[in-house]
Amino acid sequence: MHPAPSLILFTVLSGLGFGLMVWLGFGALVPLGWVGFVFWALAYGLAGGGLLAATFHLGHPERAWRALSQWRTSWLSREGVLSIVTFAVMAPHAAGSVFLDRPLPVLGALGGGLALLTVFSTAMIYAQLRSVPRWHHWTTPAVFMLAALAGGGLLAGQVAAAGPLFALLAVALALHWHMGDRRFAAGPDTAESATGLGRIGKVRLLAPPHTGRNYLLREMVHVVGRKHAARLRLIALAAGAVVPAVLLVALPAGHLLGALAVLLHLAGMLAARWLFFAEAEHVVGLYYGRR
């Protein structure tokens, strides 16, 4: 799949923002006044910025509001609705903490749960697609939610909890890659089942339907840059999860160290999310003799 920068930014930034909201909402820390303002601005800024980035992916961003209507069937719609509801439910708690020194823990906890659900629904936009075997698996929401919880925990200064969460994230990433590498080949969809010509023999593309480019190939049979995948996986795993975990567990906590861990994690997750898209093979590639 085409690794669109807008979608990479959307999933990474909004995941981090909603992840931070989970910790703030459940009261793992209750920053008040200016400190509170910084934390809440960061959470809303990351989550909102990510959603804004996502609208750059749309052909008609001015119609984006219509995406809130189909929450009964569409995970993308659910994601939109949940983010707005989370923002709204969380707002009194945030405003109370910042301006009145009066946190509202019940609304906070409700908002925290909604924030986690939002991240889950973001992951389900991808995990629901049977046409992309690498995504269609529980490791997809596992990676998205652990990344949000670990990254958010780090931003919230929850060093003790974030360390193990990073370790879990590393495991989830490794599982997502390891199992994902085999799923397409192990699955039922082949050039033979795609064309139904398996009853005659072995199917091979002789000539594509067009020698020019098309939307399908650009969007869903994106193979550019996959040769760097092995190296990028190492970078993503190390910077996104392993090094932050080690830093948090092994070294004394501090703002500088925290900032370093955040930057490393962000860079690592951007790489991981690039891989998430670029390595995902769509079954339509079977009609083009490519994956």
């Binding site: 064309t195 005659i200 000539a207 480019r213 098309n214 939307y215």
Partner: peptide, 29 residues
């Protein structure tokens, strides 16, 4: 790099059989 929208496209496949020569199958989709 022309790139247009088409709602119907015709692929051409070659099917290798166990017996007999391979066959070409045109495949509209």
């Amino acid at each position: 790099a022309p790139e247009g929208t088409f709602l119907n496209r015709v692929h051409s496949f070659e099917v290798t059989r166990e017996a007999g020569p391979p066959v070409v199958v045109h495949f509209p989709k």
